[in-house]
Computed example of a mutant assay.
Amino acid sequence: MGFYDLNKQERANLVCRIKEEILRDLIHSGMDEIIHYCSDEDTYIRKSAYLSIGKLYIEKVELRPAIIACLKQLAEHDNFKVRQTAINAAGEIGKQDFEIVESFFSNGLFDHHHSPRNAVIGSVKKMGEVNPEPVLNWAKKYLHHENKEIRREICHGIELRGRTHPEDILPLLKELQYDTTARVRNTLVHVIGQIAYKKGCLQTVITHLNTWENKALVTDALEEIIDVHHRYRNFSALTQDQARQYIEEHCQ
């Protein structure tokens, strides 16, 4: 039976049980229940497991070394779901202590399975939103990696911070303006659009784009920004016409 086949109370009870059993494993240096939940077919069971590990890291300071040691074992597991869950758990920890889990993301970027790599992107998003400085400093190291997928994943991963603080990620995005790989370029244009439609963000984005040299890329980005203001019209600070007018008046 899947997580959402249960009623609300049953789900709450299951979440409590998962946390209790993970705690018991950590206290007694066990792995059976942790691996059981981290490898579950149901993504919401795995989510409950990594959220529980993150909460235990905060609540049980004395268990932090055991938690990190456990995650290191999980990150090398044969099952990609276990590795994915380990990275997601590291992402919860990285919201406050990035340095101690940095290696999980550096290694996860190169996992042979896409699920752990996607977990890196998701973790960078959630960590970068609340703990941006060390996360963005880490991301900078991979902006010009020889592997195009690494560059694309980093570009995608820093997006969420940019939705509220575009000024934090625009210098990083600028470094990708001459990337000739279509998937990287398309992701870059997408991210620029995504960080431009919230209140006060369009002005910051346009000011920065005026400093970019690749005018063909900028043109594509401006078209995406205008289109985003229509696609996200229920959430945009400006209407599409207002965004278009602002761009016409302020783009150099």
Rank of each mutant, 00 (worst) to 15 (best):
residue 2 G to S: 11
residue 3 F to N: 09
residue 5 D to K: 12
residue 12 A to C: 05
residue 17 R to A: 14
residue 17 R to L: 15
residue 17 R to D: 13
residue 18 I to F: 11
residue 19 K to G: 09
residue 20 E to V: 05
residue 27 I to G: 02
residue 27 I to D: 07
residue 28 H to D: 11
residue 32 D to M: 10
residue 32 D to R: 14
residue 34 I to F: 05
residue 37 Y to C: 02
residue 37 Y to P: 01
residue 37 Y to H: 07
residue 37 Y to E: 05
residue 40 D to E: 06
residue 43 T to K: 06
residue 45 I to M: 12
residue 46 R to L: 04
residue 46 R to K: 06
residue 47 K to C: 05
residue 49 A to T: 02
residue 50 Y to D: 08
residue 52 S to N: 06
residue 53 I to T: 03
residue 53 I to H: 05
residue 58 I to F: 10
residue 60 K to Y: 13
residue 61 V to R: 12
residue 64 R to S: 07
residue 69 A to W: 02
residue 70 C to Q: 04
residue 71 L to G: 04
residue 76 E to K: 15
residue 78 D to V: 12
residue 78 D to Q: 14
residue 79 N to E: 14
residue 80 F to W: 12
residue 80 F to G: 01
residue 82 V to N: 03
residue 86 A to Q: 02
residue 90 A to Q: 03
residue 93 I to R: 01
residue 96 Q to D: 09
residue 98 F to P: 02
residue 99 E to R: 07
residue 100 I to T: 12
residue 112 H to Q: 11
residue 115 S to R: 08
residue 115 S to H: 11
residue 116 P to M: 05
residue 116 P to L: 05
residue 117 R to L: 02
residue 118 N to E: 14
residue 121 I to H: 00
residue 124 V to F: 11
residue 126 K to D: 14
residue 128 G to W: 02
residue 129 E to L: 15
residue 132 P to V: 04
residue 134 P to E: 10
residue 135 V to I: 15
residue 141 K to P: 00
residue 142 Y to R: 07
residue 144 H to V: 01
residue 147 N to A: 09
residue 147 N to Q: 09
residue 147 N to L: 08
residue 149 E to Q: 05
residue 150 I to R: 03
residue 155 C to Y: 06
residue 158 I to T: 04
residue 159 E to L: 13
residue 159 E to W: 08
residue 159 E to M: 15
residue 161 R to S: 08
residue 161 R to W: 01
residue 164 T to I: 13
residue 165 H to M: 14
residue 166 P to M: 10
residue 168 D to M: 09
residue 170 L to C: 08
residue 171 P to M: 03
residue 173 L to H: 11
residue 173 L to S: 04
residue 174 K to S: 10
residue 179 D to A: 08
residue 180 T to V: 12
residue 181 T to Y: 15
residue 186 N to Q: 15
residue 192 I to K: 04
residue 193 G to A: 08
residue 193 G to S: 07
residue 193 G to P: 01
residue 195 I to A: 03
residue 196 A to M: 09
residue 196 A to H: 05
residue 198 K to A: 11
residue 199 K to A: 12
residue 199 K to R: 13
residue 202 L to M: 08
residue 204 T to Q: 15
residue 205 V to H: 03
residue 205 V to Y: 03
residue 206 I to M: 09
residue 208 H to V: 00
residue 209 L to K: 03
residue 218 V to A: 00
residue 220 D to I: 00
residue 223 E to K: 14
residue 224 E to M: 13
residue 224 E to Y: 00
residue 226 I to T: 15
residue 227 D to S: 13
residue 227 D to T: 14
residue 230 H to N: 11
residue 231 R to W: 10
residue 234 N to D: 15
residue 234 N to G: 00
residue 237 A to Y: 13
residue 238 L to E: 14
residue 243 A to R: 00
residue 246 Y to C: 05
residue 248 E to D: 09
residue 249 E to T: 11
